[in-house]
Nucleic acid binder design. Structure first.
Lengths: 107, 107
DNA sequence: GCAAAAGGTAAGCTATAACTAACCGTAAGT
DNA sequence: ACTTACGGTTAGTTATAGCTTACCTTTTGC
C-alpha cells in the first residue's frame, strides 16, 4: 500500500494546490468534480494531484458509481505527526545533553 | 520575522536535501561547512537551502565569528504540529457530524 | 598587514513538476 | 442502444526550483 515515508508525505503537501485539496477534504469526502470547482486549475490537474496524494497515503478513494469519492487517510496525518513528534523529542534530548556538557565544562 | 505559514513550512520541508539538513540539525547546532560535508551538494547549495529554511522559520542562525551556526527553530516545528493537530480535530468533527446525519437519515 | 577560512550572493544551466488540451473508458439514466 | 456525466491517462509545453561556478565580504590567526 502506501509508503508513509516522510520524504513522500512532505513532498506531497509541499505543493500549494495539493495542500488546498487536502484541506478541503477535511470537511468530508468529496468527488473530483466538486473539488475542481473552486480551484483555478483544470480537472485533469486535480486528478493528477489526487493521484500523488493517494500514492503518498494521505488520501483514500471510494468509488460510488461514476463518482470517485476522496477522503482523508488518517494514517497519513498521524504519520506526519509522529515524524514531527520524534524529531522534536530527539531535539530535546540532544539539547539536554549539550546543556549538561556545558555545565561540566564550566565546573 | 518568520511567517510560520503552513504553505511555506511544508514547501520548505518538501525538498529532500532540505529535510536532510533539517534532520541533521536535530543533533545540535552546526556550521555550514560541517553540514555540507556529507551532503552530495555543493556548499553554496547548502547556503541557499539554509536561507529557505531560515525564511520559513524552521531554523535559527547564530554567528560566532566566521562560523554561522544553524539550529532548529522550536516555533517552526510546533507550528507544523499545531497545523496537523487542528486539521485532525476538524476532520474528526466533520466525521462525527456525518455519522450523526447518517443515523438520523436511517431512522 | 596578509593569508586563509567561512559563508553569502549572482549568473547561468538543466531537469522536472505542474499545467492544459485531447482522448478514452465506464457507469447510469432515458 | 444512445447519451450524458464523471474521471483517469497521455502528450506536449512552460515555468521554476535546485544546482554549480565564480566572485566578493568578513573575520581570524600569524
Amino acid at each position: 500500500m502506501a509508503n508513509l515515508k516522510p520524504a513522500i508525505l512532505f513532498q506531497a503537501l509541499g505543493d500549494p494546490t495539493r495542500r488546498e485539496i487536502f484541506e478541503r477534504l477535511v470537511k468530508g469526502p468529496q468527488a473530483v468534480v466538486d473539488l475542481s470547482a473552486g480551484l483555478r486549475v483544470s480537472r485533469p490537474a486535480v486528478s493528477q494531484h489526487l493521484k500523488v496524494l493517494k500514492d503518498a497515503g494521505l488520501v483514500l478513494l471510494e468509488q460510488r458509481g461514476t463518482r470517485h469519492l476522496y477522503q482523508l487517510a488518517p494514517e497519513g496525518v498521524t504519520a506526519m505527526r509522529d515524524y514531527l513528534d520524534r524529531l522534536w523529542d530527539a531535539a530535546l534530548v540532544s539539547f539536554k545533553a549539550a546543556a549538561e556538557k556545558a555545565q561540566k565544562g564550566e565546573k
